[in-house]
Every structure is written in structure tokens, then in C-alpha cells.
């Protein structure tokens, strides 16, 4: 497999990148780590005339916390996110997703922006970002707009971003006390896998009273995009967290998913595993919520 020929641009600021994307609208694609894009180009799935590299834009790689929000630049590598103590403390489920992604070599190149931008239903970072209620900061020559990540994914490889728009950052509201999350993924082997199912859950408790005030469950690999599970969330909200309740929520999550059969796994297995992973991630979320008071 030979990489097809293309023009290569290396802007050094976000605004220059936006300029280039606007000027070459329709023929240019953003290149971050290239771990998704270049593979698809070699396979001739995508054949952009131009690549606009984000690799030399320092402002894209910031990871910082201020005023209760976590700002993660789209160019932050997955290995940086996996190693970040801040992420581990404030968005542990995202850290777990980052550690589950690919191999050390892939993680060193892959970026969070690319993981979102590629819009793969099985990607490791979106479920956690969805349950944390992350907001994407989108930039183009027209300016900046903010979009909840849940509204971003439109189908495999399809997003709500305009052709000339780039993701500049992901913003997460740091969960309050008595809130916690969990993430689990299941593939064939321990590393370097395409997930068969991946699930993130988030629980916010009403202080020591332990009534579930907010709950979010996101399911990966079981639909054209990562999915929220409204039924599971409805089961959980307003209740006391118990094993029996989590079982009910897990059943509800299974009803909300729409897995397909492919060579990686059957629909039935995926549906069963949505239940198992939903229950297990809820248990993780509860343990973390109890520890964050």
C-alpha cells in the first residue's frame, strides 16, 4: 500500500490553519497524528488533495484547568492525556479511555482532536467525553462556536463540523463532589484492538443522602455513533444506587443500543456486553463518586 501524493501545509497558528481550510475548502483535510487519516489514505478510502497539518500549532496542545473547567487542546496527544495527573483526578474515565487506546506508539501520535474528528463509532475517547458533558470549541475563519459533543457525531466518519472548521479544544466542566465516572472497553485481546463494545457511565449523587441526581451512560461500538442511553439514565435518576438498580439500568441500556453484526462480533454479543459493561462502569462511577466528597 502506497500513500497517494498530496500537497502538504504546515501552518503555525490556528487562524492560519483556518485560512488554509477556507481557501482549499473541499479539497483539504486536517492532519493531526495521522493514525487514522493516513491509514485511510493508503487504503484509498480517502483521497484528499491537500493535508493541513496541525502538528506545528503550539496553542492546540494545551491542557489546563481554570475556574472549574478542564481545557484540552485538540492537539493534545493521547499519551499526554493518559499521563496527565489532572485528567486522572478530574476526568478519570477519559484517562482510562486514553490508556485503552492503541499501543504506546499510536498513543504518542494520536490526538484527542483526531479521535473525535475521525468519528469512529468504536473510538475510545468519545463515551467518556459524552458522559462528562464535554463541549467542543470549533474554529473557522467565520469565528468560534461551541457545540456539545453529543451533537457532533452524525454517523461513521460524519460530523457536524463544517468543511473548513477545526476542533480547537475540548472543554469539560470538572465534576463536583459526589460525582464520578467509569469507562471500560472490550476487544479481542488486551491491546491494539478495535472495540467490540465500550461504555462510559457518570453518576452524581445528592451528597450523603446518596440519591442519584444526574446520570449519563454512553455506549460505543453499538450504533452509527456513540450513543447516549436515555432509558438507563431514566432508570437511575432519583433512585438510590444499588446493585439491583444497576441491573435494571444495564437492561435498559441494552434496549437503547442498536448493534450490527460484523466480522468483529455478533449483534447479540454486543448487546449482552452493553449490559455487562454498563453495570460495571456504573459500579466504578459510584465508587468514585463516593470517594469524591
Amino acid at each position: 500500500m502506497i500513500l497517494p501524493k498530496f500537497e502538504f501545509h504546515e501552518p503555525t497558528s490556528i487562524s492560519d490553519a483556518c485560512e488554509l481550510m477556507a481557501r482549499h475548502r473541499g479539497e483539504a483535510r486536517l492532519l493531526a497524528g495521522g493514525t487514522d487519516l493516513l491509514v485511510n489514505m493508503k487504503k484509498k478510502v480517502l483521497n484528499p488533495k491537500r493535508l493541513v497539518s496541525l502538528g506545528r500549532i503550539p496553542e492546540l496542545t494545551q491542557v489546563e484547568r481554570s475556574n472549574g473547567t478542564l481545557w484540552i487542546g485538540a492537539g493534545a496527544t493521547v499519551s499526554a492525556i493518559a499521563a496527565s495527573a489532572m485528567v486522572a483526578r478530574d476526568a478519570s474515565a477519559l484517562g482510562l479511555g486514553a490508556r485503552a487506546l492503541g499501543t504506546p506508539l499510536i498513543r504518542n501520535l494520536a490526538t484527542i482532536g483526531g479521535n473525535i474528528g475521525s468519528a469512529r463509532p468504536a473510538a475510545d475517547l468519545p463515551p467518556a467525553l459524552i458522559v462528562y458533558g464535554a463541549v467542543l470549541v470549533l474554529r473557522s475563519v467565520a469565528g468560534e462556536r461551541r457545540l456539545p459533543i453529543g451533537e457532533f457525531f452524525k454517523g461513521p466518519g460524519l460530523t457536524a463540523a463544517h468543511e473548513d472548521e477545526l476542533i480547537a479544544a475540548v472543554v469539560i466542566q470538572v465534576p463536583a463532589g459526589y460525582a464520578g465516572a467509569g469507562y471500560l472497553n472490550l476487544g479481542v485481546r488486551k491491546a491494539q484492538d478495535c472495540n467490540i463494545v465500550n461504555v462510559a457511565s457518570y453518576l452524581e449523587l445528592d451528597g450523603r443522602a446518596e440519591v442519584i441526581r444526574a446520570a449519563r451512560v454512553a455506549l460505543g461500538s453499538v450504533g452509527p455513533t456513540p450513543l447516549r442511553s436515555p432509558s438507563a439514565e431514566a432508570v437511575l435518576i432519583g433512585q438510590k444506587p444499588t446493585e439491583a438498580l444497576f441491573d435494571l439500568a444495564a437492561d435498559a441500556a441494552q434496549r437503547d443500543c442498536m448493534p450490527i453484526l460484523d466480522f468483529r462480533g455478533s449483534a447479540e454479543y454486543r448487546r449482552d456486553m452493553v449490559g455487562v459493561l454498563a453495570r460495571r462502569t456504573l459500579t466504578m462511577a459510584l465508587a468514585e463518586a463516593r470517594s469524591r466528597n
Partner: peptide
């Protein structure tokens, strides 16, 4: 062959 690469043809990794 559907899985004609080493991403989808699953060998044992060092972690396994």
C-alpha cells in the same frame, strides 16, 4: 480475506 492486516488479524500482543 476480510482481515488481511495485523490490526484485524489478532496476534498475541506483549500484554496478552
Amino acid at each position: 480475506v476480510i482481515n488481511c492486516d495485523l490490526a484485524e488479524y489478532k496476534l498475541v500482543t506483549a500484554l496478552d
